[in-house]
Design a protein around this nucleic acid. Sequence first.
DNA 1: GCAAGGACGTA
DNA 2: GTACGTCCTTGCA
Length: 986
Amino acid sequence: MPAHDPHHESVETGDHVVLIDGSAYIFRAYHALPPLTRSSDKLPVGAVAGFCNMLWKLVRAKDAQTGFEPKPTHLAVVFDKSEQTFRKDIYPLYKAQRPDLPEDLRPQFPLIREATRAFDLACVEQAGYEADDLIATYAELAKAKGARVTVISSDKDLMQLVDGLVRMYDPMKDKAIGAEEVFEKFGVAPDKVVDVQSLAGDSVDNVPGVPGIGVKTAAQLLAEYGDLDTLLARAGEIKQTKRRENLIEFADQARLSRQLVTLKRDVALDVPLDDIAVVEPEGRRLVAFLKAMEFTTLTRRVGEAYEIDIAAVEPDPGLKAGGGETALLAAGLDPDTRETAVPLEGAPSAAEGLTPQALSAARQAQATSTPVDRSRYETVTTLARLEEWIARATALGLVAVDTETTGLDPMQAELVGFSLATAPNEACYVPLAHKGGDEGLFSEGLLPGQIPPREALAALKPLLEDPSVLKIGQNLKYDWLVFKRVGIEVGPYDDTMLLSYVLDAGASPHGMDPLSIRWLGHTPIKYEEVCGKGKGQIRFDRAPLDKASEYAAEDADVTLRLWRVLKPRLASEGKATVYETLERPLVAVLARMEARGIMIDRQMLSRLSGEFAQGMGRLEAEISDMAGESFNPGSPKQLGDILFGKMAIPGGRKTPTGAWSTGADVLEELAEQGHELPRRILDWRQLQKLKSTYADALPTYVHPDTGRVHTSFALAATTTGRLSSSEPNLQNIPVRSEEGRKIRKAFVAAPGHKLISADYSQIELRLLAEIADTPSLRQAFQDGLDIHAMTASEMFGVPIEGMPGEVRRRAKAINFGIIYGISAFGLANQLSIPREEAGAYIKRYFERFPGIRAYMDETRAFAREHGYVETLFGRRCHYPDISAKNPSIRAFNERAAINARLQGSAADIIRRAMARMDGALEKAGLEARMLLQVHDELIFEVPDDEVDATIPVVREVMEIAPFPAVALKVPLKVDARAASNWDEAH
DNA sequence: GCAAGGACGTA
DNA sequence: GTACGTCCTTGCA
């Protein structure tokens, strides 16, 4: 039926068939995109604009493009024809509850059809069938010819189509939907989606399903019984009474639901598949349409692409404002409620009709071309002006945000002001609590010309929480917490620091200043220039307002510019999934963990501090006795002089700087030779460490209001993807020594609660078995063997039963050595054996496990060739010095690269678990809250009576964390325990 | 007052 | 042999 170009070619292998769910697109676009109206007559055209931008991107994609690669060869926009479908015949209530169309959406339906024709693309609809059935049929035909299919929609009803050749694409989120996403939604693979829907039903479409069964239960049942028919046949076996009865009673309703949700894949198509081939649009006709719509940016782009003088083209007379039927469509709309037309700039998905590669190259080139002009920044002093900025940001759907505060700790610092940026050089600072000038009786007065913070924040809150406006920050976790403390939960968001981290971890730093210098060629104002440094440093709220304002506005401006450069690289370098699944979700997750904090027993620590001090005093007396003089045992320099100078003990080593080495390993050796002093020093150092770093320091971190300790987790601090923790570091709380565990005991659950510690057992060794594909190691894990003993047995031929501890210890050291990128030198050091012997061990190990040598060789070669390695989940860790001429630097980088694949993959897995954990706990109706992460361990605080219910949920989330992105052959094992303090829970 | 080096706590 | 952060001393400004 479409007036379509007859020069089609038939579909064949390698072709790419794109099917757009037109009706669904309009609804999504209407709700997700900022409202946009044609300026001359206020005709609402937001969805049409988004649609045209998308089509342009599709038909002009020159190269591979995420989600649309390869370039579409065939494309159809598919619509629902009418209400009456075969499903209504089966079940009259089907889709009987659809609300009426919003007034300003209705006129966009015919315009979308017009747009499709203007692009010379097929517009398909067929009586008696829903768009979904037509899409399913086209997909089926295309697959049969070996073509790839992309369905542009995020409708869950279409997810049953996903398979190796068919994927979906969510045009609003700019995100591919594959088997993984389907699994995340339904808990089953795509081929079981229909079964889940048949059981769970759908209130929106009025699909009945089985009462009492939701998606989660359905997925669980299907995992157990395989498929719907088997489940219904064996329903009698189900333990839960109500569930069993319902499944038996409503079995027929489930089968009816299956008929409703199963898409018809064999519709007799009015428009054959071959007829939807993509052809080059007729430029002038397209321009005429776009001009009539008044989409100036896209009109210009299309004009340039086809070398058409757009001024010479008349707008389509049937569609232009006041000129045709569309004017009538707009009638009845209240012009005052319509937004003025704003071009969709900034967002790469909507703006530029380019491939990701071309876009990121263009953005990079542009980045330096508009110099930062601080004179264009504005200091906002009135609510009215602020509201104008907010309106502008809302219309754009995009804004960079930065907070200025009184300190560096987001849990304590007070908000002083915030800045916004909407385009390069288009930025403002909104001071809220700057002080100075007049002194009040007890405190300094606020400077005049500041909006009352409550009013400003009340105006800002809807913007920062608006689901259709993307907030962009640099290290956004900080700002997220600051805003959270004033009652604003920021979202959705992007973080430029994390973008940089995903793209360049190990290659360059991710702080704003270095990023600005590198990508924008611009050096921002230094904080010291505003507030001074050292002793003379003043708080931001006391800084001169003009300087403060420039500084703050520039931060937002720079952040926005960085986003424009970095965000497109995500797609062009294939790292969008890493960012979306491993980075972005962690911002809010970690912010919440930090805000919760953990309780410590200060009395216990204070008592310990006294004990440690006593012990140190005793040791100091003995030490000076033995040394024959009093000296500072905390000074390695003085100690070295005593031991190797005055006492002339032989066998001393030197540090790289030429000083005597007095490290624990050296002192340990001396102690074993019978020297008493080194033993005392070691004991003293242990107490000194425990006292100063833990017993004395931790209480100083207790928050005055919450009474708890709030660490700060860094998301972008390591090369491998691990988190880090600081101020205080709660990832290095002692556990190995008896004395140290007393510190750990002081980490306690709140009254009426327990701490649960859940940790992955041997995760890096398991990943070694997986990545290096070593069947014997894998088998050992599957059989639940003692992996170190098994290694020893393989290497030395000693039976596991009755194995001497020393033999196992050596194997364990070798296993760890492998993870660390083993060297004979390091292993020899660790085991205190000659280097030759260590070398022999390694040789034997590689003979027994040849796959691991291959893994290490491959990793070295890959890193050498590419300058980076990748984890199982695609995270990149860069090692720019991997090809250094200096052999020891090179070897160091090789070991680090070998380690990074394992450490990084483990880090990815726990990140995935953490990203899902809050939701899983909530879904299970549990009060448990995640407090800490220690690389392979998660710590929760749980009400006493929920401990037993929480542990299985936590364990499940952690153990299946790699799935479905990666299906490990090696099982993951999680140990979890609860107690009232961390030591006993661990 | 600050940076570097050494030492040591964790995974 | 990997990955971190913190405390203390030292040496220089």
